[in-house]
Write a protein that binds this DNA or RNA. Structure first.
Lengths: 209, 209
DNA sequence: TGTACATCAGTGAACGCGCGTTCACTGATGTAC
DNA sequence: TGTACATCAGTGAACGCGCGTTCACTGATGTAC
């Protein structure tokens, strides 16, 4: 039940902090359960249950680190999806689909990310400055939102994010199976859902409130 | 730490099942934490930790019962909001706001409801037949969705529900504080968010895809 | 270059905890005669 | 109406568990002289 690396590891690990975060991610991915224990993470890293306390104040600090990595990965994947996007397609929808795909592929990590945010009652600052939030704003502006209307932009970003989160958490329900089949697969289904939301439509067609 | 009723309760309770569900709701409301234990519920009901097993197969069955009650209450509140709605206002938005208000007022219960659904990978059947889901469909039809286009209706309902869930889970973030203040309070904020989503707009203005 | 020593990053045992669930039991209730 | 008895719905003690965290410890490392 230990990682191969543990067997030959010297007394001093080198970068246990990193190793713990990696072990945590691995557990989250493997078990699909967001309720991981500090002890399980230490075990996975091949280290005693007390060792993590030299690198994290407590369990929640480890979870925060895991969440932060998750947000990074999400932003990277959203950016990649936008970059890979063919001309003429709806970039807002593409972004939303990438968001949901990440959450679907990494459900436990996504839940940890979100739980940490709800816990602190705020999302990591990094999101605003260089992460997914900024990406959302940029894409909104691209798609026609007035960049000088701060309130309008914030409101639009909030709505987009809420919608994406809601879709991310709900699409795994069996209720949508028929719809998904009828529309021809996951991606088509997600695009259809997002396309129901005005914000995700091309700017030219958007109504003025 | 026991309920007053426990002190004078006869050996046979009468309706312990009901009492346990009520105790559970009470705990969820009081602690705001969705992670309640079977033992805590029994304690709250003034009964031994083994007693619940005469009424529920295991802990998850108790949680399911709590979730079901939650869905009932949600449907009731949504219906009430629609009934109280002044003429001329956007009923879809009103419904969404009611949904979110319920989730905000009963966060732990809402989380239990949702967790149970994700657990079973499906929502309670009751929702479709007589609960909140049916209400959503009715309101969509009222607001102009073609009732004979089953796929369109399902898709719209899915999108509405996803959006409402996303908003419900995210609005408690501090990020939205400025926006909320600027717009003049919780309700205005929620209406603004929902109004960003085409589906929540009056039918007359909706674009044809 | 060698040595004393402070510091760092691990160990492993132990703490107290609350949990879900089971078990043999017992008090209360209802029913058949 | 009274009584034997089956059934029901509780009790309370116990099970084994894994958890987060602390503690005194020790092995390894790096630095000052």
């Amino acid at each position: 039940m230990q990682t191969a690396a543990a067997e030959t590891r010297p007394y001093h690990h080198g970068d246990l902090r990193r190793a713990l975060v990696e072990a945590g991610r691995h557990l989250l991915e493997a078990e699909g359960n967001a309720d991981i224990s500090l002890r399980a993470v230490a075990r996975e890293a091949g280290v005693s249950p007390a060792a993590p306390y030299h690198h994290f104040r407590d369990k929640s600090e480890l979870l925060d680190a895991l969440a932060l990595e998750g947000w990074d990965q999400l932003a990277t994947e959203m950016r990649a999806a936008l970059d890979a996007d063919g001309a003429g397609s709806n970039r807002l929808v593409t972004m939303g689909v990438a968001y949901v795909n990440f959450a679907r592929a990494n459900p436990a990590i996504y839940r940890v990310m979100f739980a940490c945010s709800l816990n602190h009652e705020t999302m990591p600052e990094k999101l605003r400055e260089e992460g997914a939030y900024k990406l959302v704003c940029e894409t909104l502006i691209e798609s026609g939102i007035d960049p000088d209307d701060e309130i309008g932009l914030e409101l639009a970003a909030a709505a987009v994010w809420c919608a994406a989160h809601g879709v991310a958490e709900m699409v795994s329900l069996k209720e949508f199976e028929p719809l998904r089949n009828h529309l021809g697969g996951e991606d088509a289904f997600l695009r259809a859902i997002f396309s129901q939301l005005d914000l995700f439509r091309p700017a030219s067609g958007r109504r003025v409130a």
